[in-house]
């Protein structure tokens, strides 16, 4: 269970939000909503421990993530704005390295299968891929992250066509039905195959 307690976020001397609190239990799906510059990305980065909140803390199963560090990191997948793929590696190499670094090495076969699910040629160098394909090659990690309980996704549907977006929402819905939990940011409303989505509107925590 992920808990956010009285979080306050300051960027560049400006308070983005304060007093933000929520709990994300198993099987829950949370959409973080709010206009640009309200701190959606900052909130996700606070939740995964990249950013230290100005006040409050994030707890994972009751323990502050500041103390858990790698132990917590092993139980989450964070996909940020940047796709985190290297131009000079193939999509398969990128995915394999990402999985190894996160502590869940995957077989070559499953990596190829995951990339093909999202329609990315595994052996192509990433610099030859289109923007949307890069995005999808990063999202392919979700296919291999079934056993990772917490998914934190920053704009997972950006730069995706309708078919790919449906694939990704399908993956997320399946994850949540399995008892996983996920939080994501997005501009557009999206359906998750009948899985209820709770919404956290950052406007409500305006400082």
């Amino acid at each position: 269970m992920l808990e956010a307690a009285e979080l306050r976020c300051e960027r560049g001397g400006r308070t983005l939000f304060s007093g933000l609190a929520f709990t994300l239990g198993s099987g829950a799906l949370l959409r973080i909503a709010g206009p640009n510059g309200r701190g959606k990305t900052s909130l996700l980065r606070i939740l995964c421990g990249l950013l230290e909140p100005a006040a409050g803390e994030v707890r994972w199963k009751g323990a502050p993530i500041r103390e858990l560090r790698e132990e917590f990191a092993r139980q989450l997948v964070y996909l940020g704005h940047a796709p985190a793929v290297k131009d000079d590696l193939t999509a398969a190499e990128n995915l394999s390295i990402a999985c190894r670094l996160s502590g869940f090495p995957a077989t070559e076969k499953s990596i190829h299968a995951a990339l093909e699910t999202l329609g990315v040629p595994p052996q192509a160098l990433v610099k030859k891929l289109s923007q949307g394909q890069r995005r999808r090659s990063a999202l392919a990690r979700l296919v291999l992250s079934e056993s990772v309980p917490l998914w934190l996704l920053d704009e997972p549907l950006a730069a995706l066509d309708a078919a790919a977006a449906a694939l990704v929402t399908g993956l997320v819905a399946e994850h949540v039905r399995r008892g996983g939990m996920a939080a994501f940011t997005t501009h557009q409303e999206a359906g998750f195959a009948g899985v209820p989505v709770s919404v956290l509107d950052l406007d409500a925590f305006d400082a």
């Binding site: 995964c48 990249l50 790698e70 990191a73």
Partner: peptide, 13 residues
């Protein structure tokens, strides 16, 4: 390209 963040969130310290 964002890989540094992934390293900071990796399984290794």
């Amino acid at each position: 390209d964002g890989t540094l963040e992934q390293m900071a969130l990796g399984a290794a310290p």
